[in-house]
Design a binder for these strands. Structure first.
Lengths: 207, 207
DNA sequence: GTCTATAAATTGATAGAC
DNA sequence: GTCTATCAATTTATAGAC
């Protein structure tokens, strides 16, 4: 039963308008990254983002600095999480093979918990200064992983009939490929993905 | 020694202008795919393509039907090569494990020989009808590979402590990740990539 | 085949009212 | 905070001269 428009009750106690939480930069970043991943960064217009957020383009601009700033924030979030893994004690001390396995596992976990941000990072092409900066940070992380593999191979703990660079790229390429299919339709649990991926890689690279 | 401008020799036998082969649709597709892979499809304008070909945008349009047609042609080239693998005798007869290994190897070879086209295909997002059609063909190929893995697992020839779908995705995700780094700077030979990738995957998935 | 010129639509971003 | 209106630049694509 809806009270007639204009009654006293309707005027003094208007039906509660379905009210969303007020937007902040973090919320809209989440919206933006989702759309970026669906349509690609360059394939997404600010109009697309505003529509996804349910406001106009101008309102959207009230909250964020622009398209490129959104991309930078998303990439930084992914990269900060990856570098935090690199700086954990278990990544820096001990046998190289143990550190390698630890980094594989933790990287996969980050990839799943920060999935949209890592996905976007992995697709960056280098068209702007922002993108080049993200690529450079990413390459730094890649050098860290390549060093791990090289050391573990020198220790005799990884098969050495494959070039270290190729082994590194296959290992982390396998992990990164998870971003290509692990979406909301999650028929596989995160733990199963981590255990499965790390297990297959480790066995595949055993001496 | 350059003859002075205006001499008889210069007028009758003009210095040979560095003449390129006349453009055809295939040549320009090659140019386009290269730029698409560098800057991303949506990040590339027809102006970019024309500049890369050394002609104007209008001249470029004289040879090709448009941006989307270029994408469709590139995806078709990659998909035709993949489906040709699927239809080879060694992919359709024999034990599933042998067919699986054969398809892994052949797919990697296609990936390297048709690298730019496969790279572009793997990045398609589904923004237009053209892209959706390419994605649908790709999914058909994915179903073929998933069936192979499922059968080989049922035969007891692949480890069964991993879901078949996860195993398939890890295996072909590893292969596909090659497109992310195997560019012109080829420090690793194609054969080493094929042997390395297939070898790591097969060992990683052994029972 | 290649060019200049231009059309028609879209894009990232801002101005200013409420 | 949200809106309408608008701008300047870019983008896909075409017309028509040479």
């Amino acid at each position: 039963m809806k009270p007639a428009v204009g009654t006293v009750a309707a005027e003094r106690r208007p039906a509660p308008i379905p009210r969303r939480a007020p937007y902040d930069a973090t919320t809209l970043l989440e919206v933006a990254v989702t759309v970026f991943n669906e349509r690609g960064y360059d394939g997404t217009s600010m109009e697309d983002l505003a529509r996804a957020a349910g406001i106009t383009k101008s309102s959207f601009y009230h909250h964020v600095d622009g398209k490129e700033a959104l991309l930078a924030a998303a990439c930084d979030r992914a990269l900060d999480a990856l570098f935090a893994v690199r700086d954990e004690p278990a990544s820096t001390a001990g046998r190289a093979i143990d550190r390698f396995e630890y980094v594989l596992r933790r990287t996969t976990q980050i990839l799943l918990t920060e999935l949209p941000y890592v996905t976007l990072l992995l697709r960056v092409r280098g068209n702007t200064a922002t993108e080049l900066a993200a690529l450079e940070r990413r390459r730094e992380f890649d050098r860290f992983t390549a060093d791990l593999v090289t050391q573990a191979m020198a220790d005799g703990d990884l098969r050495s009939d494959i070039e270290p660079g190729l082994a590194t790229r296959l290992a982390f390429g396998t992990l990164n490929s998870v971003t290509e299919w692990y979406r909301v339709a999650r028929e596989t649990s995160p733990d199963a993905v981590v255990d499965g991926a790390v297990g297959v890689i480790v066995r595949g690279l055993q001496p």
